[in-house]
Nucleic acid binder design. Structure first.
Length: 158
DNA sequence: GCCAACGTTGGC
DNA sequence: GCCAACGTTGGC
């Protein structure tokens, strides 16, 4: 089993949105970065665990966890010429972009803020914390995943 | 294949 | 709103 961090802007799609959906499951579509796509396509498997990260918000933080419930399949959004994520290079015959399905797992008692992540020596090597890192899907180690979950389960201030 | 210009990301 | 960092594009 692998561990991941997936970014989303909560104004667009948040952990609360995911939790409220039927089956608490959603497709993770719209990824248009090759490195992130390759992680989904080549390395993500059903059962993998996900740190659900809220970016571009007042207090960026890991909000909780999710689980991969469907492995990579074509992102049909790339085929819609009127859609915002259209990419003419992608066709049903030769899809360029893929998506996975994620299912809500848990919401942290307290979101683990970016500042908190930075302050934890166990998380020193997390890709997210590297300067200039913008990748929306990143691998994390089992140890890093466990450390973030441990912080999240703790109520109250860090 | 190089690299300048441009658009996007995302923390602050 | 600012701006640094990065990925992509396209001329050459």
């Amino acid at each position: 089993m692998r561990f991941w961090l997936m970014k989303t802007e909560p104004g667009e799609f948040s952990l609360a949105h995911l939790k409220a959906l039927p089956g608490q499951t959603s497709g993770w579509d719209g990824v248009r970065n090759y490195q992130a796509r390759n992680f989904m396509r080549d390395d993500m498997r059903v059962g993998d665990r996900v740190l659900f990260y809220h970016s571009s918000t007042k207090s960026p933080a890991v909000a909780g966890t999710a689980r991969i419930v469907r492995a990579a399949y074509p992102d049909a959004g790339a085929w819609d010429p009127h859609g915002p994520r259209y990419d003419p290079r992608s066709t049903p015959q030769r899809p360029v972009w893929v998506m996975v399905d994620v299912q809500f797992e848990a919401e942290f008692a307290a979101p683990v803020t970016l500042a908190e992540l930075r302050g934890d020596p166990r998380l020193r090597d997390m890709p997210l914390l590297r300067r200039g890192m913008r990748l929306s899907i990143q691998p994390v180690t089992p140890e890093e995943f466990a450390a973030v979950v441990e912080r999240g389960r703790r109520k109250g201030p860090p």
